Amino acid sequence: MTKLLYITANPKTDSKLSKGMQIAEVFLESFKREVPEAEIIPMHLYEMDIPQIDMDLLYGRAKLSFMGYEFEQLSTEEQRRISAMHALADKFIAADYYLFVTPLWNLGSPAILKALLDNLFITNKTFTNTEQGPKGLLTNRKAIHIQTRGGVYSNGPMAEFEFGDRFLTKALSFLGLEVMDSIIAEGMDHHPKLAPDIMAKAKKRAAAAAKEMAADKITS
């Protein structure tokens, strides 16, 4: 079955309170029309226990990757932390399509999104090192990012300070995913009177992007 992982990094889990999720709902409706058999799998990061890179996870991963340890040689806590990391990565890998929805906070995405990505960078599972450099292993998958911004960062003096969308899309590309052009709704706090028009245009782009994403169906 075709699977789309719907990842939100926002403590607002009610779409009535989140402009990004309102745009995402239009995307998902359009995608389901194109791929009615698709399974939409929500992943609301603020409702999950995302493994953080602490001492146990840091050393457990190092022992397995280049220190010559076997999994059974790790401490009980290291085994637990590594197992949680791989379980999360396995859930991510099992999908065919990915929809990320985040706000822009303090020049970047919420920290919990970085925590998720930290669990996805696993040598010989999601990427490998070759003589030509790192190579992503998560090919034949598509991803798109919906981001809402109170200010304007796509151009002007703040453009060089946007690290949320830029980091996410580069990280996903590194892992081998095909990343579509992001859907950005920005300036709604700076220009509140324009917010309805900004949202309407973003929703229109979302519907079109979903149709484009589904055009070349991925076979799991």
Rank of each mutant, 00 (worst) to 15 (best):
L4A: 04
L4T: 02
A9W: 10
P11R: 08
T13W: 07
K16S: 11
M21V: 04
M21A: 13
I23Q: 09
I23T: 06
A24T: 10
E25G: 01
S30F: 03
F31T: 00
K32A: 11
R33H: 15
E37T: 02
A38K: 00
A38W: 03
E39K: 02
I40L: 08
I41F: 02
L45W: 05
Y46S: 06
D49Q: 07
I50L: 02
Q52R: 03
D54T: 00
L57V: 02
R61H: 11
R61S: 15
A62P: 03
A62H: 13
K63V: 03
S65P: 01
F66A: 00
F66G: 00
M67R: 12
F71Q: 09
S75K: 00
S75C: 04
T76K: 09
E77N: 11
E78P: 04
E78G: 00
Q79N: 10
R80L: 12
R80A: 15
A84Q: 15
M85D: 09
M85R: 07
H86D: 15
H86K: 13
A89R: 14
Y98D: 07
L107M: 13
G108F: 10
S109R: 06
A111Q: 12
L113Q: 09
A115R: 08
L116W: 10
L117G: 04
D118Y: 04
L120G: 07
L120E: 11
I122F: 08
K125H: 15
K125L: 15
N129D: 06
N129W: 12
T130E: 08
Q132I: 01
P134M: 03
K135C: 05
K135V: 07
T139Y: 04
I144H: 02
T148H: 01
R149F: 05
Y153H: 04
Y153Q: 01
Y153D: 05
S154N: 04
M158Y: 07
M158W: 10
M158H: 05
E160C: 05
E160S: 12
E162V: 00
F163Q: 11
F163Y: 15
F163R: 01
G164T: 04
R166P: 01
R166H: 12
R166Y: 11
F167V: 07
A171C: 06
L175D: 06
L175S: 03
L177H: 03
D181N: 10
G187T: 07
G187E: 13
M188F: 15
M188Q: 14
M188K: 05
H190G: 13
P196F: 08
D197T: 11
D197A: 14
K201S: 10
K203A: 14
K204E: 15
A207I: 04
A208V: 10
A208L: 11
A210C: 12
A215Y: 00
D216M: 04
D216G: 06
D216P: 01
K217L: 14
I218W: 06
T219E: 11
S220Y: 13
